[in-house]
Nucleic acid binder design. Structure first.
Length: 104
DNA sequence: TTAGTGACAGGCA
DNA sequence: CTGCCTGCCACTA
C-alpha cells in the first residue's frame, strides 16, 4: 500500500472538488495543497495517479490558461471534455481563466 | 537507493 | 509579444 504525501492527497481532493464548468491551474492547486512551488508535483499527480484515481484531470491547465498536454490526442480529448462541460476553449487550447477559474 | 521524469511557474532579455 | 533559464517537488522504474 503506497503511502502518498499529504500534499499529494490534498491535490487529489482539490482536483476532485472542482465543480463541473470550472477549471483550475497547477500552480493554484499546488498553493491550496500547501506547496506554492509544487506545480510539477501536481503534474505528477495528474499524470501518474489520475489512472489509479478517477480524477477530472481535464479541469486542470497551466497558469497561462492553456491546455498543456504534449500529445495531440490528449490535447483534443481534454479540449473536447472541457467544451462538453460548457467551457469555451480556443483553437489553441486557450481558456479565459478569469471566467472559469475555480478558487477555493 | 539513485536518477530521471513531468501536462509547471516566474523572471528576465 | 516571444523565447530561454532556473527553481521546485513528488512519483516511477
Amino acid at each position: 500500500m503506497t503511502e502518498y504525501k499529504p500534499f499529494t492527497l490534498a491535490v487529489i481532493e482539490i482536483v476532485k472538488s472542482i465543480p463541473v464548468g470550472y477549471i483550475s491551474t497547477y500552480g493554484d492547486i499546488a498553493k491550496y495543497a500547501g506547496n506554492p512551488r509544487g506545480a510539477l508535483s501536481v503534474v505528477r499527480v495528474l499524470s501518474s495517479l489520475s489512472r489509479k484515481f478517477d480524477l477530472p484531470w481535464h479541469r486542470v491547465i497551466n497558469s497561462r490558461g492553456v491546455i498543456a498536454l504534449n500529445s495531440e490526442d490528449g490535447f483534443s480529448i481534454q479540449k473536447q471534455l472541457l467544451l462538453d462541460e460548457g467551457i469555451e476553449v480556443d483553437e489553441g487550447g486557450g481558456i479565459d481563466l478569469k471566467r472559469y477559474r475555480f478558487e477555493l
